[in-house]
Write a protein that binds this DNA or RNA. Structure first.
Lengths: 181, 181
DNA sequence: CGTAGTTGTAATCGACTGATAACTAACGAC
DNA sequence: GTCGTTAGTTATCAGTCGATTACAACTACG
């Protein structure tokens, strides 16, 4: 048996990574804890024991995605603290599209009372960070987040990012006009 | 018994309306056909018999939401065929927030093979319509849809629209800067 | 060694869910 | 009125899912 045991900490990290993949595909309600467990190669009850509940697993997954975006923006701002710099960084995140799609699923699931507050908090943190890093006005930040939401939704629709669906006529117009090139 | 029977056509329409409410809250996977049935005041098996499957019910619901947005835009364009006119019409749709949230849930669920094509089709139809109605350039249309996605996501997060959550510090900045006032 | 703590699994449960089938009741044409 | 058609229900099922429990295996340490 080459397989060695991991510490709970390592397993936690690995499970969150697996959850990003799983939740990006099916959303909160449409993903089972067993799917996450299979991706990580552990049993389903163990996932529950580490996170306590499916909801906590999802929250941890969303927090991780938000943290990754924050980290990306901080790094980008160190070189180019403009909205354009952060925008290019966000488009690079399409390479890890699942992260963005998990965030979108979280936003869409904000009606769930157990998730709403955490979701709004996550979004607020991102908004505040962008303004802090760039000093952008409210209007500039609004346009920045609008473009970000468009990119995110197009990613979720499999129109942008890895394994994008074959281009349809209207898409070419929209994609050719995307900002932050 | 005051209750009279409806034609299948009338019931279909009524069920789609109920489904908009239900799916807006829980999304595709997170909503049961029984919840839809209860809102409409019929039995769950009858919902299945009318639509054939839960997936068909959701598709009909998304098509209805898309049609409603199209109708709103056509009406607005008759008076003011500019992006500003359509944008104000879209913000008015926040009064029927569930419609927009259902669309967002559809976009997020595009990874489902049974939904993806329909979702992209719906989005493409909206994009094409806006360009046809307004004659906007690809860049203008891109900004328009970006703003629309922001409004939709904020609506789903219960930050905009009816029964919006109490304002938090960052929100005021973002909401005060929304376009199409 | 042995034993205590930690990692991990198998078994299982109760609740839920979409769908099917069989049945009932209202409506309309003749 | 009676009879075919359509609207709608009750009963039920087979599968799924999150969670609990009890147990097993590995590891560190004295």
């Amino acid at each position: 048996m080459v397989r060695t045991r991991l510490t709970a900490q390592e397993r936690h990290t690995q499970l969150v990574a697996a959850a990003v993949t799983a939740f990006a595909q099916g959303g909160y309600a449409g993903t089972t804890t067993d799917q996450v467990a299979r991706i990580a190669g552990v049993s389903q009850p163990y996932v529950i024991r580490i996170f306590g509940s499916k909801q906590e697993l999802f929250l941890a997954t969303m927090r991780h995605a938000g943290d990754r975006v924050q980290q990306m923006w901080r790094t980008a701002a160190a070189e180019d603290p403009s909205l354009r710099g952060l925008g290019m960084a966000y488009k690079q995140l399409l390479a890890e599209r699942d992260l963005l799609v998990v965030l979108l699923h979280g936003f869409a699931a904000a009606a769930d009372p157990g998730l709403g507050d955490a979701v709004r908090q996550c979004y607020g943190d991102l908004f505040t960070l962008v303004r802090d890093l760039t000093g952008a006005s409210a209007e500039e930040a609004r346009d920045f987040f609008a473009a970000g939401m468009l990119i995110t939704v197009l990613g979720a629709m499999r129109v942008l990012g890895p394994d994008a669906v074959p281009t349809q006529p209207w898409m070419a117009d929209l994609l050719g006009a995307l900002p932050y090139e």
